[in-house]
């Protein structure tokens, strides 16, 4: 177990704009164990996609460190060695724009193979057919263009492309949020099967907590560029601690009475996520929090391990400053 494929430590990504500095990701630390799925959940504007893009190298971090199998990779993709790029792949949210509509599916799936010099042209064609088979698409799809396919089929091509180089870590940035539930179910089950077969680790970005309940090993909640709570999935849903997590969970519309029972007692959602340009002082959530008290607007809380593996970033759970806790607080 305990081998970490990805470690992110005190990652910061700020964007300088004419209207001020956008603190998209502010001191975020987490890790992904080998073979697990870490669900990174948050509302729009919470910085979850920025984390994904920084890990892949589409953004270079403002400060902090990203380590892949212990090696420091805190730099943009242009400065990363090719072998590394082969190991980390990403699937984007909207397959309508992430696939080039002027290329055939064959060209799209061949490109990563060409870039990484995997096989000659005949091998590559065989590999394309094999990849299409894996995602349960007929081989003659390689002559089609992406806009001849449906949304679900396009996303399957995008997944096939991500798997072409046999990666170790795949970042899934809301891969099913643009799709219908019946197609989502198919894609999710496929992703889970690939994870098993190819020993993949997933960083799964989404806003859908119900989906995370069924997919991830651990869940991390982001709010305004910070991680509020991290816990193993079972604990996260049976015993949430952070007031924001409780608000999120109680806002989810569900279909079964049994699900109603899982939700924390109705917590009325209030307010909106503040702009990341003007982050409120102290804990960023204090403007919407029901359990707010004086300290929340003054001091930034610290990450606290409330039970084994369950970390909460909230003043309701004060940090006991023993050396072990400090150490753990950093290595979330």
């Amino acid at each position: 177990m305990n081998s970490k494929i990805l470690e992110v430590e005190k990652l910061r990504k700020f964007f300088i704009t004419s209207r001020g500095t956008v603190r998209a990701v502010d001191e975020v630390s987490f890790s992904v164990e080998e073979g697990e799925t870490l669900g990174l959940v948050g509302e729009s504007g919470s910085g979850k996609s920025t984390v994904a893009y920084t890990v892949v190298g589409l953004h270079s971090p403002t400060s902090g460190q990203i380590r892949f199998k212990g090696e420091d990779i805190s730099r943009p993709v242009s400065k990363r060695p090719k072998a590394l790029k082969q190991s980390i792949q990403i699937v984007f949210q909207d397959p309508g724009t992430s696939l080039n509509s002027r290329r055939t599916i064959q060209q799209i799936l061949e490109l990563p193979l060409k870039v990484h010099h995997l096989g000659n042209s005949r091998d590559r064609k065989e590999r394309v057919v094999e990849l299409l088979e894996r995602v349960e698409l007929p081989p003659d799809y390689m002559y089609k263009s992406p806009n001849m396919l449906g949304g679900g089929e396009r996303q399957m091509v995008a997944i096939a492309r991500a798997l072409a180089t046999n990666p170790k870590l795949v970042i899934l940035d809301e891969p099913t949020s643009a799709l219908d539930v019946s197609i989502q179910a198919k894609i999710i089950n496929m992703l889970l099967r690939f994870q098993e077969e190819m020993k993949l680790s997933y960083l799964f970005i989404t806003h859908d907590l119900s989906l995370m309940r069924n997919v991830s090993t651990r869940v991390a909640i982001m709010y305004l560029g910070k991680i509020c709570e991290v816990a193993p999935t079972m604990k996260f849903f049976s015993n949430p601690f952070h007031p924001y997590t409780k608000m999120l969970l109680s806002s989810i519309p569900v279909v079964l009475p049994e699900e109603e029972a899982v939700k924390p007692a109705k917590i009325t959602s209030e307010g909106e996520i503040p702009s990341p340009v003007n982050v409120p002082p102290g804990c960023g959530f204090h403007t919407r929090c029901r359990e707010v008290n004086g300290i929340c607007s003054q001091k930034i809380p610290e990450m606290m391990e409330v039970e084994p593996g369950h970390f909460v970033w909230c003043h309701l759970f004060p940090v006991v400053t023993t050396p072990t806790n400090l150490e753990k607080g950093v290595s979330v």
Partner: peptide
């Protein structure tokens, strides 16, 4: 549709509806 919907109670997701 009901089966394909991820539930808060967990238990995985059914295969969904084939085709489109």
């Amino acid at each position: 549709l009901m089966n394909a919907l991820p539930k808060l109670t967990g238990g995985g997701i059914a295969e969904g509806i084939p085709g489109r």
